[in-house]
Design a protein around this nucleic acid. Sequence first.
DNA 1: CCGCATCCCTATAGATACTG
DNA 2: CAGTATCTATAGGGATGCGG
Lengths: 136, 136
Amino acid sequence: MESKSNCPVNKSLEVFGDKWSLLIIRDLMFNEKRTYREFLYSDEKIATNILATRLEMLCKEGIIIKKKDPNHKQKIIYSLTEKGIDILPIIIEIGCWGVKYKPVTSKQKLRAKELKNDKEKLLKEMKRELLKNTQI
Amino acid sequence: MESKSNCPVNKSLEVFGDKWSLLIIRDLMFNEKRTYREFLYSDEKIATNILATRLEMLCKEGIIIKKKDPNHKQKIIYSLTEKGIDILPIIIEIGCWGVKYKPVTSKQKLRAKELKNDKEKLLKEMKRELLKNTQI
DNA sequence: CCGCATCCCTATAGATACTG
DNA sequence: CAGTATCTATAGGGATGCGG
């Protein structure tokens, strides 16, 4: 696909600038979802064809990778690459805006504040975890 | 519109989770665009009907406001509210990701780094400017 | 000139049923 | 379990119109 402009913001949005992609990435980061079924049963009720195309696109873009579960061969595990993990700051900022301007629970407010403070630490942890898993 | 879930990330995305909204906000923040025509002539070539509906939505959401140009009565000036200015950190993070993972110029790289470092300062400046303009 | 509104057509999103 | 197939609804693109 041809890029509409060479603005970095636009180029990023052409990758994950639709609602569903960022929600899938959110589920990978914070909700411990890793299989097709788990994504399918998200709170926002993504349709199965949309999920399939998004997962494929995110793989192609190098934001997630899929591999077979070593224990249950029929299962497929999706996980974030470093490129995907680097979307964390964006998700956190989006969450913080929602917490500030949309009605949310006090629990969610607290969580957002924690995440923002621990952003750098969390980023490093996720990348360390990634490295560990690829070495196995 | 009914919210699909009560996740803050989802609630934010339901407001500006489409490509065009964030590009309009980017133009307001960094490209000094303030009139309908100026948005229309963006690099990404937004269609006139899309622009109209997005501007209306962003007004309704309280992210931008429209007022008549005091000098040229037939002109309409759009500007960010505080709620809109608070989207700045999101745009900056999106830009930084693009700079890191998409082909961009060295100028764009430098600019992204500057913006990230001066984020807090820039936020305050934009809000101070907003306050000044509303007092007039 | 200005800010849109409208129409028409196409592309993509989305819901649901089904399959290897 | 992880997806396809199929169908419909909606979003988007582009030309053009229109009141101020």
